[in-house]
Design a protein around this nucleic acid. Structure first.
Lengths: 230, 230
DNA sequence: GTTACAATTTAGCCATGACTAAAAACTACT
DNA sequence: AGTAGTTTTTAGTCATGGCTAAATTGTAAC
């Protein structure tokens, strides 16, 4: 398993190390301050464990750690995180398109596979998919050199009523949520018409394939759309 | 990751546990007495470590351990080993056929993937390949219920000279060896003509696609063939 | 049967990375 | 500035599973 970043890193990284780096990347990308509590809650370990690991990653020059401050990634740490994220998203798309794994299941499968595929396999997957730009949830796939495109669309919750939109991204990996959306016909790139926003942050009325549905505000906030004209 | 055997086993198994069980299975299948030294050499850990692990597997009822005796698998242990072997061989074939990964590289890739694929993914892979019976090296793929077919063919080194054969199995996973065979055109199911055995266990002369090659006796012993007529 | 040699097991060490509980440090309110 | 409350860190425990070195057991030759 030759990793892209192997030349820059002394010791090989465990799945766990990679998960921490990926978590920090994702939290940073969300615009959050990656405090110890935010990080530890996200990865599902105790705050003490997170501190411990962050210190180790810091010794490896993968993160910047200053006590009582938000963690951040070093350039190398970001490279690693983006490589794992690339693996993850390529795998999700591959599993979905090549093996018909439903979009609500690809995440957890990719979560384990992402740590064990070689560069050669990564390349073969990317090639077989025609070097895709986004995964089955609309998340951009980082390039081999560690670049990543902007996240497309804007939240449905902030879209104007009385217009048609196209779903371009779903900001959730939760199986149940995705399965629910799938049942409504709300798959990626589906067109929908936004009827109205109920007041007081209430449900959003949308029409999908001629059928009207009420979406919880919470759900609408996770749906990224662009105007349907495009 | 729901495993077939999860109902029979208390604690989840690590990759390492699975590797030990697989190793014991393979060594047993070779007809070897799985002594501690044989096992430890095969898995690449010290004899002390092997004893340790075997004791733990024994507590989990996966192997039968009697001090100073050969280890053997319990029915559950065999189930686990065969499940991993199924994963391994399905993955090898999948990588080779679906992603064009060369046959000399699929082994090491599958070696890592085999531990992290779910039952659902295993099923999807098997279905997409049409429920295949053998992997790219001709090794039989265990069924989902833990049955495994007999190994096909007999060694080329014991075949009669002056006859045509078909290569049905290669008893090696070594990259260089497989790459070498590939260069000679000796891929699976290729026809070859056995000219002669050089005396004193010397090289074996074979003709492949009209070209004659001398194969080391050691190599010929790894090639399983059947008469070409079939 | 003794003795020598090889194989195996035991004992004890170490690193890893989780955990809990306690200490320390920050923040915010008065 | 002092204090309450929260967050973070430290200290120390535990399980895992490798390792080495030493003790033990088994085997085979005399």
């Amino acid at each position: 398993m030759t990793k892209n970043y192997s030349s820059e890193i002394a010791s090989p990284l465990s799945s766990n190390h990679e998960d921490y780096l990926k978590a920090i990347y994702i939290l940073e990308a969300r615009g959050e301050q990656v405090t110890n509590s935010v990080l530890s809650e996200y990865i599902g370990f105790t705050p003490a464990s997170a501190t411990n690991m962050v210190k180790k990653l810091s010794q490896m020059d993968l993160v910047i750690y200053r006590p009582h401050q938000a963690v951040s990634l070093t350039p190398t740490g970001r490279r690693v995180a983006l490589e794992i994220l690339r693996h993850h998203r390529l795998l999700e798309l591959f599993l979905h398109k090549t093996l018909d794994i439903p979009w609500d299941s690809v995440h957890e499968e990719a979560e384990r596979l992402e740590h064990v595929i070689s560069e050669a396999l990564e390349d073969a997957i990317a090639a077989s998919l025609g070097y895709p730009k986004v995964d089955p949830h609309g998340d951009p796939i980082p390039t081999k050199t560690g670049e990543i495109g902007p996240t497309p669309g804007h939240p449905l919750s902030q879209a104007k009523a009385g217009r048609a939109y196209k779903l371009v991204r779903v900001l959730s990996q939760e199986k149940e949520r995705l399965a629910y959306l799938g049942r409504l016909g709300l798959n990626l790139y589906v067109e929908l018409f936004l009827r109205e926003h109920a007041p007081f942050d209430g449900p959003v009325l949308v029409e999908v394939a001629g059928v009207e549905h009420a979406l919880a505000a919470e759900m609408a906030a996770l749906l990224q759309v662009v105007p349907a004209s495009a």
